[in-house]
Computed example of a mutant assay.
Amino acid sequence: MIKIVISTHGKLAQELVSSAEVVAGKQSNLYVIKKSDNDSLAQMQNKINNLLKNINDEDGTLILTDIIGGSPCNASTPACKSFNTEILSGVNLPMVLSAIFLSKNTKTVSDLAEKVLFDGQKSIINVKKMLLNKIK
């Protein structure tokens, strides 16, 4: 099964996992890496590499990060050279849920990344406009 790593600043990753598990139940393929105030880029890279060494298998790993250009994202990119990984930035709860549900039946990590990206983008909606358009 494809593994999912959520890497963010502070407690966001753990809170996303906690919220996702309220909906989807406890997950065995979901991992968290947080950047604390004192972590350097090299320390973040070590955290990511060590985790990937411990969990990696031929199915690959999808890494979800909070913001492009942030330390969690930047620290993840070198892992693409050594591991079967895909990285998506801008993680939100719909992306985490999509990754959880689709990871069980998606064959490749690149296919999973495409589907999760689509679901994440699709979930960002101006609700007021949507409701007003339905009323017309």
Rank of each mutant, 00 (worst) to 15 (best):
S40W: 00
N74G: 09
K129P: 05
I124F: 09
N50K: 11
I63G: 02
V127S: 11
L30K: 04
A42R: 03
T65V: 11
N29W: 05
L52A: 05
L131Q: 12
E86V: 08
V127I: 15
N92F: 05
Q121W: 10
I100P: 01
E21K: 06
T85K: 06
G69N: 09
E58S: 15
D57T: 14
D57N: 15
M95W: 03
K26M: 08
L112F: 06
D37W: 00
L30H: 04
L51N: 03
S18H: 11
I33V: 14
I67F: 13
C73Q: 05
K136D: 12
A24F: 09
I55H: 03
K53L: 14
N29S: 11
K26A: 09
I2T: 07
K136E: 13
Q14K: 12
S123L: 04
C80H: 11
D111C: 09
N133E: 14
L16C: 05
L102Y: 09
V127E: 10
L132H: 12
I6K: 00
I135P: 04
S123V: 05
K128I: 12
L131V: 14
C73N: 14
T106P: 07
I125W: 07
N46V: 13
V22L: 15
L93E: 05
L93S: 07
K3D: 12
N105T: 14
V127L: 15
E15Y: 10
A42S: 12
G120I: 01
S7R: 02
M1S: 13
S103Q: 07
K128M: 11
V109F: 05
L88S: 02
A20P: 06
D119Q: 15
M95T: 03
I6T: 01
D57S: 15
I33D: 01
P78S: 10
K104Y: 11
D57P: 03
K47S: 07
N105F: 10
L131W: 11
K136A: 11
